[in-house]
């Protein structure tokens, strides 16, 4: 019998801190991807947002519910990132937080539902579909992999590792796509041949989630 890792508020804090550190470390890379098909500031904007999230989380005492932490982080991103990434990631985290409600800890299936709620928020606000060369192209395969692994009886660690891998592959699969949403879409066919920066940062953030749950489980 595998002891199933349980996700707690502390896991959320570890995840968001780790995600911020990874986004910061890969900031130049994200900005480079964005310079090719966008306006060259994705790494800068996401770093600004996660810097603010770090500060907001540092002000939270023990006993805060995980859902509340996600809502706080989402609000912080909306208020600091700007561009499209701010509203999209902000709405995603807020919706995930609301989906978790007042639970103090949760398991894999609940995490999968929270991820789906986040994706729903992104799709509603951004109206992007798979294949449009956006963050959705990383997140939807990740959700699919997470559900499939959990349904097959994998541990949450394994399921999240598979989800992170699917997100990474999804991001890489945006290279041959022609962008249909966001600033890259203005380039038409010239957007082909470049990896989408939004899908790439999504994969980085999901990889941080897999690592954080693995460590704290």
């Amino acid at each position: 019998m595998i002891t199933e890792p349980i996700v707690r508020a502390s896991t959320i804090t570890v995840w968001l801190t780790q995600a911020g550190a990874d986004v910061r470390a890969r900031g130049d890379y994200l900005t480079q991807l964005d310079a090719a098909i966008g306006d060259g500031d994705h790494g800068i904007n996401m770093t600004r947002g996660f810097d603010a999230v770090d500060k907001a989380l540092a002000g939270q005492g023990d006993g805060v519910l995980p859902g509340r932490l996600l809502i706080l982080a989402g609000k912080t991103l909306v208020s600091t990132v700007g561009g499209a990434s701010g509203p999209l990631w902000g709405s995603a985290l807020r919706r995930a937080g609301r989906a978790l409600g007042d639970v103090e800890q949760f398991d894999g299936p609940q995490l999968a539902l929270a991820l789906d709620a986040a994706i729903d928020a992104i799709v509603e606000l951004g109206a992007a579909a798979p294949g449009d060369k956006t963050m959705v192209d990383a997140l939807v395969p990740a959700s699919r992999a997470l559900h499939a692994e959990l349904d097959a009886g994998s541990s949450l660690d394994q399921a999240l590792a598979a989800a992170a891998q699917a997100a990474l592959e999804g991001a890489e699969a945006t290279v041959p796509m022609q962008a249909r949403k966001g600033r890259a879409s203005y380039l038409g066919e010239r957007s082909i041949g470049h990896q989408d920066p939004g899908a790439t940062s999504a994969a980085i953030i999901l990889a941080a989630l897999a690592r954080s749950v693995g460590e704290s489980g």
């Binding site: 306006d39 500031d41 800068i44 904007n45 600004r48 909306v78 208020s79 700007g82 561009g83 509203p87």
Partner: peptide, 11 residues
């Protein structure tokens, strides 16, 4: 005014 070439925030 947002940052350079970046939308301002709702606040």
């Amino acid at each position: 005014p947002g940052e350079v070439f970046t939308s301002p925030v709702p606040d």
